[in-house]
Design a protein around this nucleic acid. Sequence first.
DNA 1: AGCTACACATAGCGTCCCTACCCATGAGCG
DNA 2: CGCTCATGGGTAGGGACGCTATGTGTAGCT
Lengths: 112, 112
Amino acid sequence: MKPDALRGHLDALLLATLDGRELHGYAIIEALQQGSGGALDLPTGTVYPALRRLERAGHVVSDWSTVGGRKRRTYQLTQAGQRALRAERSAWREFTTVIDGVLGGDGKWAQT
Amino acid sequence: MKPDALRGHLDALLLATLDGRELHGYAIIEALQQGSGGALDLPTGTVYPALRRLERAGHVVSDWSTVGGRKRRTYQLTQAGQRALRAERSAWREFTTVIDGVLGGDGKWAQT
DNA sequence: AGCTACACATAGCGTCCCTACCCATGAGCG
DNA sequence: CGCTCATGGGTAGGGACGCTATGTGTAGCT
């Protein structure tokens, strides 16, 4: 899968990963790896800036904690973040519906 | 739908629109509008450069024709373009499967 | 002492779509 | 005739955003 395909959908992935639990950045990356069956292997340079964007946008808040001498920044969704997640999910559904339709939802090419 | 969501999937849309027929740029835009139920309204500044990219990549070829005194550039898929289209469709399926899995398309999250 | 895993972070780059324009022709209208 | 609109193609410049590469520091193992 070409990595650029994620453009515009990364926020949704991060919000969904944080839905119902709090995780630190590193754990988010691992959760996405597992949740995607290994298909998503996001580099830290992608995830950390994205989390800061989400924090700036008010969709997540972070808390520092120290575990085993290592500092972790743990993120959790805000109310606005949950709203954003719902919006992202709905936008995703609409998006896939539209693209599926154009790519041939009507069976015009279905069996080649 | 936020327009940026298309990023990385525009080529697939254009190739799919040209699948089995030849169209000129303007007609492609209209075909996408109709094929998407009005959801996709791509500006010419998006479509024309994209078509030139596809031509440079060898996925489409263009022919000039004159209809009613107006010059049209008509595009059609090449063999490589059809191959690319198949690849795009398969990449799209994989992509949606992965994202759906994370976003919880299967009801895993459905009722929180 | 050196290496690996954990954990966070920034800088710079390239891609790619968008906004905003520009050009040309033909038809309809005043 | 001159204006505007629809049709049709095109470029320029910018901004958003994910990626690559790199840097920092701790802990634990050998």
